[in-house]
Design a protein around this nucleic acid. Structure first.
Length: 399
DNA sequence: GTCAATTCACATGAAAGAGACCACGGTCTAGTG
DNA sequence: CTAGACCGTGGTCTCTTTCATGTGAATTGACGA
């Protein structure tokens, strides 16, 4: 037993982390630097809710990792602290992006009902029935106001149509005892434009933009978190700056910067290095990128993998841009070989578009004049993990 | 040489079908008193 | 008589097909200089 204790002790001795949680993405710190203005703004808009008055709907946008969610949650927490005993107010947070939780109208409602303490079957009911239950449960509750935070609404609206937002905003007119305020959060700056004007006007009574952090602000944030997270003296000179620079290049994504720092720490730890050095950051960057891509590839359905495999093979052969037609014919042959049903070109076209979204390929719609219109496709997977990708694909397609 | 019409090879949209999943209500069956 | 098994209906969800329409520039061919 003593030996095991020793091993455990030595691990904790060698560990560079004091408290790793503070670097994890779900951690929410006490203070949020460089967002004071936005937080105040949100607070001032939502403040009347403490009296149970209906506040304006709020719409927030900004790129990923600019502290939107964090700020809103912060304000929500403060509000709840104040309102705890008065029972006027209720705040529910819902992330619309999480698959299997909330990417259809039905599921969003079901999730909300669950959070409010009711229950609905995961499927099988007509959607309007679910609406009715939602209304019912709302009317039953004691609170006068419900603030509904919909994170990443753009994702939801993309999958569903925007009339579910319309329904939500209209719900107020059917409710007597309780009112709903919607706080929408979106990563997509052009999201509002794509909405139905009726929805837009009611949803964005107030608007708030979160600008990206610049490199200096990122450094500030990182420094603060690093102090909480690592043991003193672990972080070498320049590491923070480099992290910040990396993330600033990608539209000031603080989440990414923190991930980078954490992974760099893990790498350093595994190598039993006593400090985090700048080279660890580079390696962390590679690793994050690599893991992300490999993970996507691995979890993709078979047909997608087949298409991707075709692209990789073709790319290897030609080294140049390839077009939808090339891929489709290669893919057809491949399907026959593996004895899999061949999808239509229409479908493959959509699959390619999805790969583009995922960042696995760069696709551009071009017109080649008399030779028609097509996508010009380039692989966006770095050379150094291409082999690994191929291997994974071959395994899962069992060649 | 110039200009509009043509044409290609797909992109992009809309609708609808197939198959999986599930809830609900009604009916049947077997076990119980 | 009643609880549980079983079935049919009707609903959602995802993936896919079918049908329809759109589109940007190379090419063509008519036209005028």
């Amino acid at each position: 037993m003593n030996n095991i204790d020793k091993i455990f002790d030595s691990v904790s001795d060698r560990s560079l982390f004091k408290n790793k949680q503070t670097l994890q993405s779900n951690y929410s710190p006490e203070d949020i630097p460089h967002r004071e203005k936005q937080i105040e703004h949100i607070a001032s808009i939502l403040a009347p809710s403490l009296l149970g008055e209906k506040t304006s709907n709020l719409f927030i946008y900004g790129k990923t990792g600019t502290g939107k969610t964090l700020s809103v949650q912060h304000v929500a927490n403060e509000l709840m602290k104040r309102a705890r005993d008065s029972k006027v107010l209720r705040i529910e947070y819902l992330n619309c992006k999480l698959k299997k939780v909330a990417d259809t109208e039905y599921r969003i409602l079901a999730e909300l009902i669950n959070k409010l303490g009711g229950s609905v079957p995961p499927t099988g009911l007509p959607t309007d029935q679910v609406y009715l239950r939602f209304l019912e449960i709302l009317e039953k509750s004691d609170e006068k106001l419900l603030i509904l935070v919909l994170d990443e609404v753009d994702q939801a609206v993309k999958k569903i149509s925007d009339n579910f937002l319309y329904n939500l905003t209209r719900l107020n007119s059917e409710l007597n005892k309780i009112q709903i305020t919607i706080v929408g959060i979106s990563n997509d700056l052009r999201f509002l434009d794509s909405l139905d004007p009726r929805v837009r006007s009611s949803l964005s009574e107030e608007e708030l933009v979160f600008p990206p952090y610049n490199a200096l602000q990122l450094q500030d944030i990182l420094k603060k978190r690093a102090d909480e997270s690592f043991k003193p003296g672990v972080v070498s000179e320049g590491v923070i700056a480099k992290c910040a620079a990396f993330a600033a290049r990608e539209h000031g994504d603080a989440r990414r910067a923190l991930d980078l720092l954490r992974v760099a720490g893990e790498i350093a730890e595994r190598e039993s290095s006593s400090k985090i050095k700048i080279e660890h950051i580079d390696r962390a960057n590679d690793k994050i990128e690599r893991d992300k891509i490999l993970d996507i590839i691995e979890t993709e359905p078979k047909q997608f993998q087949l298409v991707l495999y075709s692209i990789i093979k073709l790319m290897k052969k030609t080294k140049e841009e390839i077009f939808t037609g090339d891929i489709y014919s290669y893919y057809q042959d491949l399907c026959k070989e593996v004895k899999v049903d061949v999808l239509t070109q229409r479908r493959v076209s959509d699959i390619l578009a999805e790969f583009d979204m995922l960042g696995l390929i760069n696709a551009r719609v071009i017109s080649k004049g008399r030779q028609g219109r097509t996508r010009e496709i380039k692989l966006a997977i770095p050379e150094n993990i291409l082999g690994k990708c191929e291997q994974i694909l071959e395994e899962s397609l069992n060649f």
